[in-house]
Design a protein around this nucleic acid. Sequence first.
DNA 1: CTGAAAGCGCTTACAG
DNA 2: CTGAAAGCGCTTACAG
Lengths: 346, 346
Amino acid sequence: MQGSKRPTINDIARESGFSKTAVSFAFNDPSRISEKTCQIIRETAERLGYLPDPMARNFSLRRHLSIGFLLPQMVQYSLQNPYTIQVIQGIGTVCENHGYTLTLIPPLHKSITEAVRNATVDGLITMGMTVDMDIVSVMQTRLLPYVTIDGAPDESMPSINIQDEQASYELMNLVLESGHRDIVVVALSSDAFAKEGQSDRVPYKRMQGFRRAFAEHNLELSDQDILISECTLEDGRSIGKEILQREHRPTCVVTMSDIVAIGCIQACRDAHVQVPADLSVVGFDNIDEAACIIPALTTISQPAKEKGRLAAEALFRILNKEELTSAHMEIPYTLIRRDSLSIHQS
Amino acid sequence: MQGSKRPTINDIARESGFSKTAVSFAFNDPSRISEKTCQIIRETAERLGYLPDPMARNFSLRRHLSIGFLLPQMVQYSLQNPYTIQVIQGIGTVCENHGYTLTLIPPLHKSITEAVRNATVDGLITMGMTVDMDIVSVMQTRLLPYVTIDGAPDESMPSINIQDEQASYELMNLVLESGHRDIVVVALSSDAFAKEGQSDRVPYKRMQGFRRAFAEHNLELSDQDILISECTLEDGRSIGKEILQREHRPTCVVTMSDIVAIGCIQACRDAHVQVPADLSVVGFDNIDEAACIIPALTTISQPAKEKGRLAAEALFRILNKEELTSAHMEIPYTLIRRDSLSIHQS
DNA sequence: CTGAAAGCGCTTACAG
DNA sequence: CTGAAAGCGCTTACAG
């Protein structure tokens, strides 16, 4: 009866004796045809195993019914970071409410630009983006709406951020007030999108906050006390190992991400170094694990799910041609004091 | 120069003085045209801000370059379960390697069938599916390839599973050997896909394993000692609370999911009941958290990421018209003994 | 209520 | 090397 090919609207039209128009209406707007016609068409469709092709339909309607999330790292690392997962949760929930799917977009053949060029979505959400990036111009020429989380706010780029400089300042201030002076900072690497170091990027802003706290204590952060880590558990662990091997061991490690901080703590465990007795470690993000790990992390709590939610809602507003109340949304953070930072007696 | 609409291949053809064919080749197969032509076309495209529409291209080529993952629960719950996230990780990594995106598909207007009907993907991966479900027939009439994880193996349905009956048997056996006799089982609910209770479903198989262990000890599992929980932390917690309120408190709670087990442990904490001193709790899955939580969970370790990986690889093999070596893949599990199960002295 | 026809933006077999 | 034209499977303004 049916070959290996799916029947199309043409087959149903021919077989049922009605026009393509009628068949289309039978599935999308039955009120436009008579009940009898609708019934015959549906029966014919059922008999031939016909279902309208959603891609053809979307193509015709110039829509995708999907929002894209550009993974900031390789899939493996992105989905290993609870912070990113929470962001995805927030985005996903909004998509669900709007009847959209959520497309996770990894770099295509190592190229993020290529991935954006090929993305079949109605809009994109990115993390840590600055205007100078190639992908921005691609999105713009494609007229693809986008919102960035933890990126550098720019006129042409709706964004969701916390006050990273201030949060980092408070975190470092707490460390200094706790008496620490031998401090190593583990900064986040410029991520995959970046063309070059950019002064408005999140890692930079956090570093600025750290420096401000140092300055207020009449201290200076020397370059050799700044290390760079990818935002992965593994890299955090190897950086931690590296720090423990220094001849002059610091009393506190200040990271820019809980996942890196936890990696450091694992390195300490491996080396039988007690945290925080021998070494304090502080994080950033306040992922769920930060509260569970022993010792529980002192960190900055930022509402990741909320970030995702806000980004997605802003994007849907753009898609619906609604006015954004504010293109640059800042949401509150909290300094969380727990056990991984000790008072240092000098 | 350009209106609010994107230029199409036609605009570039007209403006450059070449045909649509040539423009198409300039982007997809430059070897088919002269260098000069290619250059002129590319310059024209650059000038007008033209990028080929990926949806139109995919539509023409009858492909999507995306794999769909049907979320087994609402987004919020699915992405809250580390087991599911690991599965997604596995799938995502394979997609990345193949240059595909991964589309997360939530139920559409509460309807999973509707979601499958509209999914614009080249293939689908589902969790916990049985052949009798509506979505199976939809996928079949759509000729959409699919693979199911933790579903009921069937001739027409490639699947990835562990030996759930045997694993559960071993787990319950350990509980019984540890001296427990007052046991409450927290089973997983028939999930959202299910039409009705089905004997080949994973929760059913696990229950069979539990019963076999009981039978071998000349015991019987009474209905009142079987509770049902959604696979969420919250539901686990409220089930835990319920159990603690029973007049006759059991000595051990056997769950079918770590996330539920952890919920139970939280309920114990809330009620100041010591685990495992006052009550033992065992899980299933061995998510990362199972090792971190105090007490660390006794559980069944199943390689979730591997399940995702295998499912995706099988799907790509189907897409490439390759022969599947075996449609039903079983992978090994391990019984993990940790601290949440105590020896019970009677 | 119904249908013929143009259109969505590409690809590609075919002819020159 | 190049282009006219058919085709992918739908939607929908328009006319009857």
